[in-house]
Simulated assay, not measured.
Amino acid sequence: MPNQSPVEQLHAEYARLHDQPPSTLTEDQRRSLTFYNGEMESRSAGEIPDTVPRDVANWIRNVFALEAFVRCQGRMPRENRRLPEGAISAVEKQRANSVRAQRRAFIAGRLSTYQARRLLCVPGFSFHPLEDVWQATRVAYADFTATQGAHRNFAAQTRPNGPSRGGPRKCALPTGAALCPQTGSRL
């Protein structure tokens, strides 16, 4: 079907998986189907039925609440301890805590494939948001240097007498600091 949303595409894929004989499924596929079936039952009944296991029901409630928050606010919940007390509502803190718990579960390998893919259907959700920002900045810088030539020292251009007496400053890591191996290899 053209123009299906990511959630609709995921549901269509798991509907086909649901029709396969259970003996042909892996453990992850069976676990994924538990979450898929719970979500489908919830959608058709308008609420989460008592037949859905408690952990599955809690997870579905959290995903639905996160989607509702993103739809209402147009962004992911903030998790910013630098803001003054009370700047973030209790509901937003609860959503942020839920997102943090899902990221930790993903890193620890406790999420089924369906859970991970379903979370990625939420607009703005990422399991590694800081890495995503770093990658986007790196790509933007690469595009800039490709179109503008090499790195340019804009500070030297704004001073009437050129750079300061000591010559151009060199950016360096603090003494004893080092880049992580993944980041260093990409530079």
Rank of each mutant, 00 (worst) to 15 (best):
C171A: 11
N97E: 14
A96R: 04
Q102H: 08
Q157H: 02
R169I: 05
G124A: 05
A87G: 00
V139L: 12
R165Q: 10
Y114F: 14
A155W: 02
A172T: 07
R138K: 11
T158H: 09
W134R: 15
K170D: 15
P168N: 15
L111F: 06
T147I: 06
R159W: 06
G166E: 00
P181E: 08
S164A: 13
S112D: 04
R169K: 13
S126L: 04
F144T: 11
R104W: 08
R165K: 10
I88R: 04
S126T: 07
R169A: 12
R103H: 05
R138H: 08
P160H: 05
P168H: 03
G167A: 05
A90D: 13
C171G: 12
G124V: 03
A150W: 09
V133I: 15
A108E: 13
W134E: 12
A101F: 03
G149K: 03
G149M: 10
T175F: 13
G162P: 04
T147E: 15
A172Y: 08
G162M: 05
P84E: 09
P129S: 04
S126R: 04
F154P: 01
R118K: 08
A116W: 03
Q157A: 15
R104L: 06
A116Y: 05
R138P: 02
A150P: 09
P163T: 14
T158I: 08
V122F: 00
F154K: 05
E92I: 01
P160D: 04
A156I: 00
A146E: 15
L119R: 04
T113R: 05
H151K: 09
W134F: 05
R100G: 02
E85S: 10
A146K: 07
V91G: 05
R100W: 07
T137M: 11
G176K: 05
A155L: 14
Q115Y: 03
A172F: 05
G86A: 01
P129R: 01
A146S: 15
L119A: 11
V99E: 05
Q135S: 14
A178T: 15
T158P: 00
H128Q: 13
Q135R: 08
P174I: 03
R95F: 08
F106P: 01
F125N: 08
A177M: 12
Y141H: 05
S89E: 02
W134K: 10
F144G: 06
P84F: 14
T137S: 13
G167N: 06
A90V: 14
L120Y: 03
A172S: 12
P123D: 03
R104Y: 07
A150H: 15
T175N: 14
R95Q: 13
V122S: 09
G109A: 01
A142E: 14
A101Y: 10
A87M: 14
A105K: 13
L173Q: 02
A108S: 08
P84A: 08
L120P: 05
R103C: 00
A136D: 08
T113K: 02
E85T: 07
F154Q: 10
R103K: 04
V91K: 11
